[in-house]
Write a protein that binds this DNA or RNA. Structure first.
Length: 584
RNA sequence: GCCGGCGUAGCACAGUGGUAGUGCAGUCGAUUCGUAAUCGACAGGUCGUCGGUUCAAUCCCGACCGCCGGCUCCA
């Protein structure tokens, strides 16, 4: 791109950081009483926070953007200047910038204080910046919102203006196309258009109603999940949605996570609580059924729906809800079996996620955090076991120091979707805490009672969230084996209905998801509607097909598949279903 | 929860201090028509909920519920 740029990502960051300064300069020109907060570059652009007596309107943003373009056209040099502490203090006192003074106050004694000048604007900043404002080839303001000073609730509320900048207009235009693509893929938009799910005011925020078309996809996902877990030696269990509050007190959830739990309800004098997790139930099942090392490892799996209080402002489609289904399982094993068990889970992660096209991932091993429970020895053993499992599986990973859960180390996996966005899906966590709290033991070979290790793991995370991600990943066009309707049979005229009906019954009998459109409508309309619903295959039947025992195949992308005998079209789908479900 | 925006028929959207429209979907009728929208008629809304201001509110004000963009949070 730019031959003079040796480190493009660093220079793009500098460019955007400079664009943030230009934003602040523009705001100060148009609204001199606005006070500046901070204005960094971000992954995709930049923002700047301002304290101002009224909110910025979209019209304000337009004016500010125009002013920014004027500043860029001025090509003001951006000049670094080192100041003494006192000079800096005087400068920002005089400018009446209390937030800058607060930042200044927080800079360690030994650090150098620098400011950057550009035209009539000076900002406290450690840089780096591009040499002059003219380097910013293209800039656009995207949105504004509230933000707390220093991100802390209770601090003054500032107004944050977001924007992005690129060296060239072409790159900005490409980015805007990318944003539009993300908007088009939004699972909330597609979920509505394609009839996948609903959240209703009447029903309550963050509670998902799965409509039939979404539910069909969910069922396929759950079927695959159950089949693979059966094969990996898991035992499926069912547990209730509420439990006595005492159980949550014993597990420690009530102490640690009460803020995220719904309020208890009273039933005949005892308090009950909606479950935020499945683990205590699985522990109770363990306690009831396992005594000997001969029974280990034992793996209890459940698609368990849990309820967590999330603040109203954080809810987001299917990605952040208050009731969701974890693809949960708990493995109880001897300490010496941790690495083997983790290795098996890693294999299962692949088997579960590869079919959905999640081939790219980043893996993180999180180690012991501050204020954790458990002995040094336990942490040491478990962390080493996780590393060993990753190494044996040949999975590259990064260490996330101190990011483990308080009860044990964990492996997190982030997967990349078709747009390159990353989603944390799988998590595997070792737990020393709960076996202790519930005094779990098994009888060892030597006849001693030994505490088992517990492993929590979820592969998809939550079925709701995973589905939302899939909708965006596939843009609503689910692959044949996963689509809510795999085939739509479209008739040309009423006289073709019996033939079409016969085929439809045969498909149903083979477990193929089929819909029919026998309406007295023109074939063009039927095709259009099936295509808008992203049905993978349309089978059109008219006089010719009826006579020859064929169907005329049309794919949802509009490409024709020609006339083929319907039995062979049927077995093609059966084959795809078998490989998709790994039943073959 | 906080800051800002928003909430009109199933969906997408107009609109006004004197109780509302358009398109698609729906229903009915006609059409039986071969690869992305056949024609016509009809019907459909206590304008998110509750309260207030007013002779009169969907429109103004307040609270609540929900949605959107962020902040914060995310065991």
């Amino acid at each position: 791109m730019n031959p003079t740029t040796r480190e493009p990502e660093i220079s793009l960051k500098a460019l955007r950081h400079s664009a943030a300064h230009v934003l602040a300069q523009a705001v100060k020109r148009l609204f001199p009483s606005a006070q500046v907060g901070i204005g960094p570059a971000t992954e995709e652009g930049f923002y700047y926070d301002f304290h101002f007596e009224r909110p910025f309107s979209p019209e304000d943003l337009q004016k500010i953007e125009a002013e920014m373009k004027a500043i860029i056209a001025e090509r003001s040099p951006i000049v670094r200047r080192a100041l003494s502490r006192k000079e800096a203090r005087d400068l920002f006192s005089e400018k009446d910038e209390p937030f800058k003074l607060e930042i200044l106050h927080g800079i360690p004694e030994e650090s150098e204080i620098t400011v950057y000048d550009q035209g009539d604007f000076t900002d406290l900043c450690r840089g780096p910046h591009v040499p002059d404002t003219g380097e910013i080839g293209a800039v656009k303001l995207l949105s504004s919102s509230g933000a707390y000073w220093k991100g802390t609730e209770g601090n003054p509320s500032l107004q944050r203006i977001y924007g992005t900048a690129f060296p060239t207009q072409k790159e900005l235009d490409d980015y805007l196309v990318h944003l539009e693509e993300i908007r088009q893929r939004d699972h909330r938009k597609l979920g509505k258009e394609l009839g996948f799910f609903k959240t209703l005011d009447e029903n309550g925020a963050g509670m998902v109603l799965w409509l039939p078309r979404g539910a069909r996809i969910r069922r396929v996902i759950e079927d695959i999940w159950k089949i693979r877990h059966d094969r990996h030696g898991y035992q499926y269990v069912y547990t209730p949605h509420i439990a006595r509050l005492d159980l949550w007190k014993k597990s420690g959830h009530w102490d640690f996570y009460r803020d995220s739990m719904f309020s208890p309800m009273e039933i005949e004098g005892a308090e009950f609580e909606l479950k935020p997790m499945n683990c205590p139930f699985h522990i109770l099942i363990f306690k009831e059924s396992i005594q000997s090392y001969r029974d280990l490892p034992v793996r209890f799996a459940e698609l368990g729906t849990v309820y967590r209080y999330e603040r109203s402002g954080t809810l987001h489609g299917l990605l952040r809800v208050r009731g969701f289904t974890q693809d949960d399982a708990h493995i109880f094993c001897r300490p010496e079996d941790i690495a083997t068990e983790i290795g098996k889970v890693l294999k299962l992660v692949d088997e579960m996620l590869l079919p959905f096209g999640f081939t790219n991932r980043s893996v993180y091993l999180s180690t012991r955090p501050e204020g954790s429970v458990g002995s040094d020895e336990n942490w040491e053993v478990a962390t080493r076991a996780l590393e060993e499992a990753l190494r044996t599986s040949g999975i590259p990973y990064e260490i996330d120091p101190g990011e483990g859960v308080f009860y044990g180390p964990k492996i997190d996996m982030k997967f990349h979707d078709v747009l390159g966005r990353t989603w944390q899906l799988s998590t595997i966590q070792v737990d020393f805490n709960l076996p202790e709290k519930f005094d779990l033991t098994y009888r060892d070979v030597s006849g001693k009672d030994v505490r088992p290790i517990m492993i929590h793991r979820a592969l998809l995370g939550s079925v709701e969230r995973f589905f939302g991600i899939l909708v965006e990943h596939f843009k609503g066009a689910f692959p044949l084996w996963l689509a809510p309707e795999q085939v739509s049979i479209l008739t040309i005229a009423d006289r073709h209905i019996p033939y079409a009906e016969k085929i439809a019954r045969a498909l149903e009998a083979s477990g193929i998801r089929v819909t029919t459109d026998f309406r007295n409508e023109k074939i063009g309309l039927k095709i259009r509607e099936a295509q808008l619903l992203k049905v993978p295959q349309m089978w059109i039947v008219g006089d010719r097909e009826m006579k020859e025992g064929t169907v005329s195949l049309r794919h949802r992308d509009g490409s024709p598949g020609g006339a083929i005998p319907w039995e062979s079209a049927k077995s093609d789908i059966e084959n795809e279903n078998r490989s998709g479900l790994a039943l073959g």
